[in-house]
Amino acid sequence: MDPIKKKIQSSSRETRQDLLGKVITYTCIALIVLVVLSIFVFVASKGMATFFVNKANFWDFLTGKNWNPSMVDSKGKPMLGALPMIAGSFGVTILAVLFATPFAIGTALYMTEIASHKGERILQSVIELLVGIPSVVYGFIGLSVIVPFVRNNIGGSGYGILSGSFVLFVMVLPTVTSMTVDSLRAVPRFYKEASLALGATKWQTIYKVILRSSTSGILTAIIFGMARAFGEALAVQMVIGNAAVMPTSLLSSASTLTSVLTMGIGNTVMGTVANNALWSLALILLLMSLFFNIVVRLIGRKGRM
């Protein structure tokens, strides 16, 4: 029989290699999916224990203003009001993004529309370096520079939501900027050229054409910035003052979900109400992160239509 004919009909080294390749890559990817699933399952099951095991009321948890899980209130229920931390987290996030957005858009516009090739590369490196600075270093600078600055020039102890927002502002700036740059670059060249050819000034072109057509991309960038700010732990924890009370001003000591978590997990005993309540905070963080993800997807879908 024709040996080539026979070879073509039987399996070979290559078919075995390909099977091996499939097994390896599918295993790796399955492992990652498993990790993500277990993170959700474990954190969710711990986080739900507060409500199912310790019978705390979910609504009270979200809206209660008193956080002191190891103490009980007049009705004998543990004080599990998470609103101060939720408010703190949203406070620093929103403020940080409010500060960062104009800077990010300005820098991105400079990089894509104004700068020379060299200027663009310099700013590109600046952005990359800002991303690279570890969050504890941001926290340390916040402690040694921003907190005293706020104390001496604005008021209060220096610890609080305002200082936290300043630190987060610098931390989310590179994220928002580089994603804004990407979306500005995606604007077709002829849009810009058509506008300039019609006699519009550079600014009119930027404002009326470029920014309009990249709105959804910029929005995505901002959401990503919010996600990063919301989840940041140590840098904020170092400057916010860590008082689990409702923030009364931007200058008073406050706390965020992440800061209470980093401080508390080590000081509570596994399985106690106090510990379970912390896991519930972690669950909120997890869900918020998921929420930001979904929003980004929705914007992306809308932007494509």
């Binding site: 277990s38 993170i39 474990f42 992160s289």
Partner: peptide, 14 residues
């Protein structure tokens, strides 16, 4: 994507 956007403190707690 979700894993990459999870707060690192949550990853640590897990």
């Amino acid at each position: 994507e979700v894993l990459s956007s999870l707060p690192s403190v949550v990853v640590g707690l897990f």
